[in-house]
């Protein structure tokens, strides 16, 4: 056949084979060279010949059975880093809380507020300043996205207040410091 592509995808006439093919499939008319060139004509004819079948193949939409993601999530949850924990103050011996779970609680607190969504939430347990031992108080660094148009000063003040309250009430750890960074804004139709 006239189609003898070389490895970098040029037709024998030097034209980019992929471009000739894509344009033929898109139904664009051949240019002056292509009309007179046997290589381009053959490539375009092949493209049009395969086009309908390829389109049908692309429209077949096999969906994965739900069991695949279910199995993945079972494995994911068993792989959660169990050693990455915060120590909670408790009169009856130490209690530990997964750092990822604690971050999820704080993010959820933020998500529940109007006009703001939590993105990153990092929780560090600070050492006790007097003894140097690990203390219970935590520092929280949180990044948020805010709805376009909200009053950023008041919303960050409320985020700080809510995160501190959630840390102390829902998690039971004193919150020493909350750093908030607004990293993006979103709109209803963005």
């Amino acid at each position: 056949m006239a189609l003898t592509p070389d490895p970098d995808g040029r037709l024998a006439c030097g034209r980019d084979a992929a471009a000739v093919w894509d344009r033929a499939v898109a139904g664009e008319p051949a240019d002056a060279h292509e009309r007179g060139c046997p290589h381009c004509t053959a490539a375009a004819a092949d493209a049009r010949g395969l086009g309908a079948l390829v389109q049908r193949l692309a429209q077949e939409d096999p969906e994965p059975p739900p069991s695949v993601l279910d199995r993945v999530m079972v494995a994911v949850r068993t792989e959660l880093r169990p050693h990455d924990v915060l120590t909670l103050p408790s009169p009856h011996g130490p209690a530990r809380l997964s750092r990822a779970a604690a971050a999820a609680v704080l993010r959820h607190t933020v998500d529940a507020m109007a006009g703001v969504r939590a993105r990153s939430c990092r929780i560090e347990q600070a050492d006790d300043t007097r003894s140097g031992d690990p203390g219970h108080a935590v520092d929280v660094r949180i990044t948020v996205t805010a709805r376009f148009g909200v009053d950023l000063a008041s919303v960050t003040a409320r985020v700080r207040q809510m995160v501190a309250a959630a840390g102390e009430q829902a998690l039971g750890v004193p919150v020493r410091r909350v750093d908030i960074e607004v990293v993006d804004v979103f709109g209803d139709h963005w």
Partner: peptide, 29 residues
Amino acid sequence: AEVGSGVSAVPDELDEQTLVVRAQEGDAR
């Protein structure tokens, strides 16, 4: 029964970058 049982699913309109950052920080949901 774990702490944080009150946490419901993430809102489904979260942007992809937010989901990626959360997943990178160990958020399985």
